[in-house]
């Protein structure tokens, strides 16, 4: 019994998402001949397709590796099966465990958060980004107690609350551009009612700190007259001069 349960909780293999096509048989077999479905003059080349849609998804070799460059983009894309979103996403193994991004999600509604973190995890899986699991961060609960009446009657009060549920996903090892794609995809498909805060860590050349400080100093030197504290100081000195002249 214990053996079985450990098998179920195992992280699914990438092959779990691929279906091996049986030659001569379509997965959703409604029309048996292309003539029935598309008319007798059907040819996939005429539609601008490079592959015959009836042969998709392509069978993948048993020792399939998503990072294998021998597999073409088309072959890889055609191996994806619709409906895999109902299962947990495949988690790519980390290569170096270097954190590259951390996304925080926050919402008032747990269901929306669960949906969107599931979506984000699947997107990361499809882009080949190794991610940690969805971590639950502490829920922020704000309480208000106000009198029920507009005036007096302090003894009759009412309580209100607002909960902010939070989740976090960490990404590792992926290239910065891939992470940017992932974030852009999540932003374009953002879910109403779910906020997102993205932190990314980039690799920068040595000595960037000094360069930044130098630039900041230059900027502050050129903008010194514009800041409010400097304006106050300047005006104050003028006042002192004038008063001392009058005295």
């Amino acid at each position: 019994m214990a053996k079985n349960s450990s098998k179920e909780t195992k992280i699914p293999d990438v092959l779990a998402y691929t279906v091996e096509a049986v030659p001569g048989q379509l997965a959703p077999s409604v029309a048996s001949t292309p003539g029935e479905l598309f008319g007798s003059a059907f040819s996939y080349e005429s539609l601008g397709l490079k592959m015959d849609p009836r042969t998709l998804p392509l069978p993948l070799p048993k020792n399939f590796n998503p990072l294998d460059t021998a597999l073409t983009e088309e072959q890889y894309a055609s191996s994806l099966v619709h409906g895999r979103s109902v299962v947990e996403p495949y988690r790519h193994p980390r290569t170096h465990s270097i954190p590259v991004a951390s996304i925080h999600f926050r919402s008032h509604h747990v269901e929306l958060l669960n949906l969107f973190t599931h979506f984000a995890s699947h997107a990361a899986s499809a882009l080949g980004i190794p991610i940690g699991g969805v971590a639950s961060l502490p829920t922020k609960r704000t309480l208000w107690t106000v009198p029920r009446s507009p005036f007096a009657h302090k003894k009759a009060q009412e309580n209100f609350e607002r909960k902010i549920h939070k989740r976090a996903i960490k990404a590792f090892d992926a290239d910065g551009e891939v992470v940017q794609r992932w974030v852009a995809y999540l932003r374009t498909n953002a879910l109403a009612g779910v906020g997102m805060k993205v932190t990314t860590w980039d690799r920068v050349p040595l000595g960037i700190g000094n360069a930044k400080i130098l630039k900041q100093n230059q900027d502050s030197a050129t903008n010194s007259r514009l800041t409010a504290p400097n304006k106050i100081k300047q005006l104050g000195e003028e006042i002192i001069k004038e008063e001392q002249r009058n005295a």
Partner: peptide, 15 residues
Amino acid sequence: RIKALRGELPGVHKA
């Protein structure tokens, strides 16, 4: 209180 009861304040409800 009025707005919270009407549901006009996002996420705020009776506790």
